[in-house]
């Protein structure tokens, strides 16, 4: 219990520090939202528009940094992030709300799949050490995880999208012929569009899960209690899953909880390559447009998600592995 409290306290302190950084960093960037808007419409808006934009965004009626910080903290607590500047006059929450589902769907499902498949393959290749699977998998995926995921994405897009026409070349669904809704056609359309970007992420992330799982599994297999189980004549399957894998999965589980936290930050480059309407691209756009409210909303979301995930991972490890508790 004391451990849990300490962890939670630490969590709150980190959260505050992260929130303050979120507030300060965007404001250290040169320029202001009105200038960014003008650059975005390079050639379309006259310089006279800067006057109108200044009034619109309240750039010239500047508040002091301290009072901005005050209203920022108030926004954080109330969950109201105001109006986006790059997507003016839409509200930050509605913009994030529109994009987050695409990211959760694409990156979230890919992360879960990568973890399950990777851990499974890691268990099996460690169990059949030196076998065919074991001599193929680790080298292949070490290489695959060293390749940047957007490069894999571009190659897949070129082969299966542009050349073979097996899969669509971008967007989250057929934007002009299909309308979003809870029906099978739309669902299949979405899966079809998510396949290539999802595959690029899967191919490049699965290697880490396989390797860590395989390595801890091999160490665990050398433990006395595994030998004991063998001596008792337990079936191989039971030793593999209940005796070895159950203990070996702990580091992977922590890693998994953390990567779930990072899911909300999206996959900027993949979303870019596949014109996918998720959070990652929105973040990039917010930074380019000096959209402080949207940046704050997004960074806060990401920070909180990661911190919560770490907290859960900590507590989960403590629950699963008594040694971490005893050490305190």
């Amino acid at each position: 219990m004391r451990y849990a409290l300490r962890r939670t306290g630490f969590f709150l302190l980190t959260l505050w520090a992260a929130l303050t950084l979120n507030f300060l960093l965007p404001r250290l960037m040169p320029g202001n939202p009105a200038l960014a808007m003008l650059s975005k419409f390079h050639g379309e808006l006259s310089p006279k528009a800067i006057n109108a934009l200044d009034i619109l965004f309240g750039v010239n009626t500047r508040q002091s940094l301290l009072s901005q910080y005050g209203s920022y903290l108030h926004q954080v607590v109330t969950g109201n992030f105001g109006t986006s500047l790059a997507y003016y006059p839409a509200s930050v929450s509605s913009e994030i709300g529109g994009a987050i589902w695409w990211t959760l769907g694409l990156v979230g499902i890919t992360t879960i799949l990568a973890f399950i498949l990777g851990t499974g393959l890691g268990i099996v290749s460690a169990w059949r050490r030196g076998g065919r699977l074991d001599s193929l998998m680790p080298p292949v995926f070490v290489i695959a995880s060293a390749v940047p995921y957007f490069l894999v994405g571009m190659v897949l897009l070129l082969i299966f999208g542009i050349t073979l026409h097996w899969f669509p070349q971008g967007f989250g669904f057929y934007v002009s012929t299909d309308k979003p809704g809870l029906n099978l056609t739309f669902f299949q359309d979405v899966v079809n569009h998510a396949f290539l970007p999802g595959m690029s992420l899967l191919i490049t992330t699965i290697g880490t899960w396989i390797l860590t799982m395989r390595n801890t599994m091999i160490t665990t297999l050398a433990e006395d209690y595994v030998r004991m189980a063998r001596a008792k004549g337990l079936p191989g399957r039971r030793i593999m899953l209940d005796y070895a894998a159950r203990n070996a999965v702990l580091p992977n589980l922590t890693g998994f909880a953390m990567s779930l936290g990072f899911v909300v930050s999206g996959a900027i480059l993949i979303e870019d390559v596949f014109n996918y309407p998720g959070i990652g691209h929105m973040l990039l756009y917010a930074v380019q447009g000096e959209d402080y409210p949207l940046m704050q909303g997004l960074f806060l979301l990401i920070t909180v998600a990661v911190l919560v995930a770490i907290l859960i991972a900590d507590l989960l490890t403590a629950f699963l592995d008594p040694r971490t508790r005893a050490a305190r």
Partner: peptide, 18 residues
């Protein structure tokens, strides 16, 4: 999964074949 789905499969891109 895709083949049995929308008829626009294979037409290429998000804009959708007119």
């Amino acid at each position: 999964s895709a083949g049995s789905g929308s008829g626009s499969q294979g037409s290429g891109s998000g804009g959708g074949k007119s």
